[in-house]
Nucleic acid binder design. Structure first.
Lengths: 128, 128
DNA sequence: GATAGGGCTTCCAGTCACGGGAAGGTCAAG
DNA sequence: CTTGACCTTCCCGTGACTGGAAGCCCTATC
């Protein structure tokens, strides 16, 4: 299977798949003409990566998750720890964004939004 | 005033201030020895930038906000529009993260986290 | 056999907002 | 005169790609 077909089936741009090969996440062999040749197992792995990325896992996390996935003797505790740490990071990020959101929403609410120059948003940014 | 002092007072690393000069956000004159010389107005502007960045505004947004701030004939509607668009982006981001968070939290809850290999997290990633 | 097209290859550069670190000039204190 | 803190420029690295150029490969059509 060539890269275009794999891209469709795994739900990843061909560019991304090439990048994943660059960084060693997949290592498809080559045909005589130099084209990458993918098998089902590689497609499966790429779809796994696509889903892990969609959940926000970093590439390095993905590397670990793939390794655990391919290790029959893994402990689920190891997987859970990776996921929990990521969950914590997501929570931190959400909290940070909600902080910004609260401040910003309040400022927006206070701004008349007309053609006059007076603006509480700029006033806040200017004075802290 | 030299860059170190400004960095303290504006709450920005010196590196960042130099970067802001690179991209034209500030243009401090130079002393005979080549050192950047800052005045109060520049410090004020950098503090403004620091607060805008802390609210998550992009550098390009900051450029616009500074221009509006320095324009006595601005319309507050212009400021409000920039802020509202940014607010919308924050909301989108929060929604996206909360989606990830929900899925991930459910998977983590279902994972035993012991020394056995069976793991719903990996199963989900593998099968979609 | 020539040509058109689509797909594949590599490589390079850009993204965003800096941060790290090297090599070297400047200044005030002891 | 030296030490050490400050300042300068310059270049590379970050994360995870994305865009684009230049060129090879394969099939189909005329």
């Amino acid at each position: 299977m060539n890269i275009g077909e794999v891209a469709k089936r795994a739900g990843l741009p061909a560019k991304t798949i090439r990048y994943y090969e660059d960084i060693g996440l997949v290592t498809p062999p080559r045909d005589a003409n130099g084209y990458r040749r993918f098998r089902e197992s590689e497609v499966h792995k790429l779809a796994f990566l696509a889903r892990a990325r969609a959940l926000g896992f970093s590439i390095e996390d993905c590397r670990v998750l793939v390794a655990l996935y391919e290790d029959d003797h893994r402990a689920s505790a190891d997987v859970k720890r990776v996921a929990q740490e990521h969950l914590q990071q997501i929570d931190d990020k959400i909290a940070q964004l909600q902080g910004m959101r609260a401040t910003l929403a309040e400022l927006v609410d206070c701004c008349a939004g007309d053609d006059r120059p007076d603006c509480p948003i700029l006033r806040d940014l200017a004075t802290g």
